[in-house]
Structure formats: C-alpha cells, structure tokens
Amino acid sequence: MATASNRGVIFQGAGKVTVETIDFPKLALGDRRCDHGVILKILTTNICGSDQHMVRGRTTAPQGLVLGHEITGQVIECGRDVEFICVGDVVSVPFNIACGRCRNCKEGKTGICLNVNPSRPGAAYGYVDMGGWVGGQAEYVMVPYADFNLLKFPDREQAMEKITDLTLLSDIFPTGFHGCVTAGVGPGSIVYIAGAGPVGLAAAASARLLGRPASLSAT
C-alpha cells in the first residue's frame, strides 16, 4: 500500500470546495494508534446538509478540512486488533464514531461517545469540532473501532444491486427514522415533518414504514 494515492473533497473557505490529493489513510489519528481500525476503499459517500452548514461558512471549520461522514465501502486492510471484520467485507459506516467501551456506548448512546473527541462527547468523520477524524468524501478512509462501528452487508452482489439505497444507512435514513421514533410515530399517527430536504424526505419515508399514517405533512 506504500504507493497508494488518495483524493478527497476539501473545504476551502466559505462557499468553496475542491478535490485534491490527500494522504493515504493510516491506522492512526495523529499519535493515537488505531490498531482496532480498518482502511476502506470507498464505494459511495454522500453529500449531507450538515456538510453544507460548514461550506456556507456557518461554522468555525478550518480551511483544508477533508469533508464527508456518510461512508459505505469495502475493507482493504485490518488493524491487528480487528477480530471479526475481514478484508473484502462490504460495510456501512455509521457517521457517529464510537468506541464501544465507554459508559454511553455501553448504553447504546453512540452519538455521545466519551472517548473519541477531546472537546466534547460525540465524534464524526470530516466535521468541525468532531474529533479531527479524516473525512470520507474521498477514495479511501480509516474507520476506528471497526468491529464495533461497522455494519457488514450479508452479500456483496446483493449489496451492489441496492447500493444507492444502502448508502443512506450511514446517516439520513436512520436519522429520519430516529426523528419519527422519538416523536412517537405509530400506526395511524398524523405526523408533521418540518423540512423537505433529504433528512425530511427520509423521515417521511420512515413514517410510512413505521405507521402508515393517516396523513403526513412535509414542508
């Protein structure tokens, strides 16, 4: 892998992104070793509304940040502490990075893991204030705590057939679904979904999956 190259989408300041050559991922984050991590060859990686917050200049995101937190890929290298994920597996990467070892992870609250971001609970790939993990709008990316984080698809061919659906498992489908679950959507519910961007539409599709609601409004 010594000669492998990588390219990614870089935030260049308000309103501007470019595609540049970036470092090939290592099983580390700075000085922090990630022998529990894997390197993925990325199959699909989505642009998200929350990336747009950064690109619009609505955050303190630094110039040079590699963007992207909605990643689906194929494992090409496993760290020595990875036991169950194997080279060749096709996997969905939850955008929340979680250690699987802290109090919150043990309670299933992986969006507020305590061990992956020195500045606050919770982390993500390629996002301001989210722990400095390199983003995945790129050709390759490193995923830490791989056995815990990754969802392996049962069959590669079947996964490739439905990849444009499965790619939405890294963020917006679960996010929209979670919005409906926490709003208490059930059979016959009338649910109002504010926002008809991708997350709003995913929430609307989720509401139909959860409740076949009598009526449904999106704005």
Binding site: P94, N96, A124, P154, F173, H178, V181
Partner: peptide
Amino acid sequence: GQCPVMRYNRALMQAILFGRVDIAKAVNV
C-alpha cells in the same frame, strides 16, 4: 441529539434488502 445510527441501521438494511422501502427513490439519489 445525533441519531445513534447503529441502533437502527441493521433493521433498516433488512427493510431495504427485503424491498419494504425505496429510500433512494424517496430522497432522489
């Protein structure tokens, strides 16, 4: 808060693989 993705992703994967939802179409990929 952030959605804890892994609470849902396996079940939603199955919904996709068994043809219960056309999520790519719904969000217009």
